[in-house]
Amino acid sequence: MKQYDNRAWLLVLPALVIVTFVGILPLIAVTNYSFLDLFSLNNPYWLGVEWYRNIVASERFYSSLGRSFLFSAIVLSIQLPLGIWIALLLQRSHRFIVSTVLVLITIPLVVPWNMIPMIWLNFINPNVGLAGRMLEWSGVGFDYKFNALHTWIVLVVMDTWHWLGLVVVLSYAGISSIPPAYYQAAAIDGASRWHIFRFIQLPKMKTVLSMALLLRFMDSFMIYIEAFRINAGGPDGATAFLSLDLGEEIQAFNYGPAAARSIVHFLIVMTVAWAFKAATGTRKPVAMEPVR
């Protein structure tokens, strides 16, 4: 049982002050902008929901929204199972292998985001790139610039290259926090590997996996620089994600429309996060835990 003491607020306060300054205040400001016409910042003109109406009325918004959700769905359904599987393989490996694989797989995480498309464009370049020349030589007819499917494949593979490490590190952290007693008990009960995974490992990984899932959803849903640099939303808008329009408005410093779009994106991300929490929030019994 934790001690009840409101003086603990004093310990939280510095963190809260900074988050208020760089998070809460800007969020309030951006909400405010979204209802205004700000030709210049000193000349606000109240518009009400005009910007929102423009967004909701445009067909482009819905097709972009659909593409963004599709991208997130593909990316999550590849990276989460793959990451969990690798973490499970690591769990039964020698310590040296574990640290080597973890070092390797986290390297893409420290590559600045604007350099990732550069690295990949070079890699798949048909004249100089290793993968590009291989594909050229094998005669696949790979063309990421004009073939929508190929652009999608490049984006998904690139995103997996970039982010798989995060899922693996978090999953592995969850798995290795399970005390050996759980496995011994499972062995006595004659549990199959699937049962161990389903009733011991998965519940114990729940917290870290939810974090991995939310982070991956948010970043893939808002993918901008990586996708833009590869093919600028092309071919023919096939990879024009939701963040593309927002990026343009922000580059142009169109405060009102950019703010309204920002709020829409914020609400979508929060709704998905909330729905996810509601769907997984009901506690199912976990092996070896007393029923509460």
């Binding site: 934790k2 001690q3 009840y4 003491d5 409101n6 003086r7 603990a8 607020w9 939280v12 963190a15 809260l16 988050v19 760089v22 998070g23 205040l25 800007p26 969020l27 400001a29 951006v30 902008y33 939310l214 982070l215 948010m218 849903f221 808002m222 901008y224 963040s243 927002l246 990026g247 922000i250 410093f253 405060y255 950019a258 703010a259 920002s262 709020i263 994106h265 914020f266 991300v269 929060m270 996060a273």
Partner: peptide
């Protein structure tokens, strides 16, 4: 445990998953 501790923890996590681009202009 203190007044509104869970709400505060949740609020902090909300900012972790807030897309940074949302906050960039303000």
């Amino acid at each position: 445990s203190f007044v509104a501790d869970r709400q505060l923890f949740f609020l902090l996590l909300v900012f972790r998953i807030t897309p940074t681009v949302v906050l960039s202009l303000p």
